[in-house]
Design a protein around this nucleic acid. Structure first.
Lengths: 189, 189
DNA sequence: CGTCTATTTGAATGTACTCAAAAGCGGTGG
DNA sequence: CCACCGCTTTTGAGTACATTCAAATAGACG
């Protein structure tokens, strides 16, 4: 059974017919390491559910520095939500950190899907609630904690990622420079 | 007609019967300036929709410093979503910046309401999408922009708040000290 | 009015950044 | 299979943005 249907089943119970119908609104896609789902300026009207592998969403600031907004390991959704809602070109880049397999759903498909399977409103409503909690906590952490403690928190929260993604990218997620993260790590040892 | 029903009508159309039913799940409350909806440690199992006035949600860090996570002027929802979802005691404080009037809905009422009026899933799903966009942008802004530009952005985004809330609190929202905000403002003039 | 809080200003400090260079590591091709 | 190339990580020195602490001034509210 599809990893996505299993994930959905944690939040709402769909009938077999609804499950089949749902799968009609998504398509499957393989992304090689470093391949993009989309880049800044592209359409960005889709979201992806990661079956295996890991994606990331990041922006590039006016000095050319990358800032990672989100990592998406297996069973996570990832999208440039601003672009998805507004229909405007993406401001984020989304690419694969390793060979990955994802489901893709366009905003059009999603909207049609909501009309066809109203129960799915709840699934996304609940996921959005959880995302919002995590993002708000991240805002607070950035205000309350020094980089050192944000790094410790990251290690606790994403133990899997620490060994699979370059430090440079963890620094980028934490909002600090790779040099500074290196120094933090040095003083811990 | 209630400000809340008007707000809902922007996203989903309820029948008069559903509207009446909906009002059965909320209660109205007046908050004097500085009165709390709840404090850290309290139950926090409710959200509020601001009819008039303005509320704020903030946490207090281990040094006793306040960090404002959200302002809620008229027509905004505000809650400690983490507490709301987990059922655990609030980590945020929510109080009124001025005399305010709000609708209050407990999580229990909300869940019963979702079962009774499934259309309302969409209303909250859409609001959550918008909140998430705003929060993710805030995370990025904190990483990409110096305090000076975050302040300018704030002025553009919340022109109404600048004149009605103390600078101290704007600094707290921006993640800087009131002294530093004062210096930023001085060098602009 | 008088008191309490918010804001301003200044000096000293600290956390994190920039720039530069060296060392480590991984992948790729000869 | 090893050598080389490019990218990541480390280390160091100098710098900048923002904080802390302190004191003076200005404002708001009873």
């Amino acid at each position: 059974m599809s990893a996505l249907l299993q994930h959905i089943a944690q939040y709402v119970s769909l009938t077999p017919v609804e499950q089949q119908a749902f799968l009609g609104y998504v398509s499957q896609l393989k992304l090689k390491k470093k391949a993009f789902l989309y880049k800044e300026g592209d359409s960005g009207d889709k979201s992806a559910f990661v079956i295996s592998g890991c994606l990331r969403a990041y922006s590039i600031d006016k000095n050319g520095v990358e800032h990672i907004l989100q990592f998406a390991p297996a069973n996570w959704w990832i999208t440039d939500m601003h672009s998805l809602l507004s229909g405007r070109p993406a401001k984020l880049n989304i690419d694969a950190l390793e060979d990955s397999e994802v489901y893709v759903m366009t905003r059009q498909q999603q909207e049609a899907m909501f009309d066809a399977i109203p129960k799915m409103e709840r699934y996304f409503r609940v996921l959005l609630e959880k995302s919002l909690v995590a993002n708000r906590q991240r805002v607070l952490d950035n205000m309350e904690l020094p980089a050192r403690e944000r790094y410790f928190n990251f290690c606790k929260t994403y133990p899997g990622l620490i060994h699979s993604v370059p430090q440079k990218q963890i620094a980028s997620y934490l909002g600090i420079t790779p040099e500074f993260l290196s120094k933090l790590r040095a003083e811990v040892k």
